[in-house]
Computed example of a mutant assay.
Amino acid sequence: MDIQFTEEQELLRSSVQRLLHDQYGFDARRKIVASEEGFSRKQWQAFAELGLFAAPFSEGVGGLGGVPLSAMIIMQEFGRHLVVEPFVETIVLAGGLIEQMGSEEQKQAFIPDIIAGAKIWALAWTEKGSRFDLATVTTTARSDGQEYVLNGEKTAVIAAPWADYLIVSARTSGHRHDRGGVSLFVVDRRAANLDLQSFKTIDGRRAAEVNLRDVRGQLLGREGEGVMALEACRDRAIGALCAEVVGAIGELNSATLEYSKTRRQFGVTIGSFQVLQHRMVDMFIAHQEALSLMQHLNLSLGTADPGVSRLASGAKSKIGYAGRFIADQAVRLHGGMGMTDELNVGHYFKRISSINIQFGDPAYHVLRYAQLDTAA
Rank of each mutant, 00 (worst) to 15 (best):
E37P: 04
P362R: 09
G38I: 04
T140Y: 11
K31F: 01
S169I: 01
L343S: 15
Y24M: 07
G323H: 04
L257K: 05
H296G: 10
F325G: 09
S40L: 07
N211Q: 13
A135C: 04
G320P: 15
E77Y: 09
G117C: 13
G66E: 01
Q76I: 00
R279M: 12
D214M: 05
F349I: 00
R206H: 01
T139Y: 05
L64C: 02
N253A: 05
Y369K: 11
F132R: 02
M75K: 01
G314D: 07
T303S: 15
I3P: 14
A135F: 07
A116L: 10
E59Q: 12
I352R: 10
I111V: 11
M283K: 09
L123T: 07
F266N: 14
G79I: 01
F132G: 02
H278P: 00
I158K: 09
D305A: 11
D113P: 05
V168A: 10
F39V: 09
G250K: 00
Q4H: 10
G79N: 02
P306K: 05
V67Q: 09
Q358E: 15
V227C: 02
H365R: 08
H347R: 13
I120K: 07
V33L: 03
M337T: 07
Q197A: 08
V186M: 15
A191N: 00
E342K: 14
R205Y: 01
S313C: 15
V83N: 05
D373G: 04
L311I: 04
A54C: 06
D2H: 13
T303V: 13
A170C: 02
S272P: 06
S292N: 12
G95T: 11
Q146F: 11
H81G: 10
L367W: 08
Q106D: 05
F185R: 07
D195F: 15
A163S: 08
E59I: 12
M280P: 13
L301I: 06
G307A: 08
Y364I: 01
R190E: 03
D195K: 15
Q277I: 09
Y364A: 04
T340Y: 03
N211A: 10
V331K: 09
V33I: 08
L196R: 02
R324H: 13
G145S: 11
M283D: 14
T6N: 02
K128L: 06
R205K: 14
E89P: 08
I285T: 06
K200V: 00
Q218C: 14
G152Y: 07
V67L: 12
R236F: 07
T138E: 07
D178E: 14
P306M: 03
I158V: 14
N356S: 14
I285S: 11
G224C: 13
A46P: 02
V245D: 03
V61Y: 06
G338C: 07
G60V: 02
V16K: 05
S317R: 15
L196W: 00
R189N: 03
A156E: 09
V67C: 11
V168H: 09
F359A: 10
Q108H: 11
V227M: 03
